[in-house]
Amino acid sequence: MSASTVDDLRAFTVAEVAERLGVSKRSVQRLIAEGRLATLYPRRPGVPVRIPAPSLRSLLESGHTDGPGGAK
């Protein structure tokens, strides 16, 4: 497996995504609710929220502007 394939298999918690984007966990939840970030599993009580690496990468490539230093 190549490094990019392994990276594509990675999934992040809400807290990890918040830290990477420099925003609050609530902001990440809002991005999920808006459909700007996908999750691995449907959002239901008791099911952990995991954001796949390709979804996070897509958000960043689309010019995400929230968080410190993110404003354009």
Rank of each mutant, 00 (worst) to 15 (best):
P52K: 07
A33L: 06
A18D: 00
I32F: 04
R44N: 04
A38F: 08
V47S: 10
P52G: 15
D7M: 12
A18W: 01
G46M: 10
L9M: 08
L31T: 02
S58W: 00
D8W: 02
A53E: 15
E34C: 06
G22A: 07
F12A: 03
V47D: 03
A38D: 15
I51P: 09
R57F: 12
V47M: 10
L59F: 07
T39M: 04
P48R: 07
T13I: 03
T13G: 03
L37D: 13
L37H: 08
L40I: 13
S55M: 06
R44Q: 14
V47A: 09
P42I: 01
F12Y: 15
R20W: 08
V14S: 01
Y41F: 15
E34G: 01
E34P: 00
S27D: 14
R57E: 15
R20H: 11
L59I: 11
D7T: 10
A38Q: 15
V23R: 09
G35T: 10
L56G: 07
Q29E: 14
L9R: 08
E34S: 11
V49G: 02
L56F: 13
P48L: 02
P52I: 05
D7I: 09
E16C: 04
A11G: 02
L56R: 08
R44E: 13
P52N: 11
R50T: 12
Q29S: 09
V28W: 05
E16A: 10
K25E: 14
G22I: 01
D8E: 14
L9P: 00
R20I: 15
L37P: 11
Q29T: 05
A11P: 00
Y41R: 06
L31I: 04
D7S: 12
I51K: 06
P45W: 08
V49I: 15
A53W: 15
D8P: 01
L37G: 09
R10K: 11
V23Y: 12
L21E: 08
G35E: 07
L9S: 09
V14I: 14
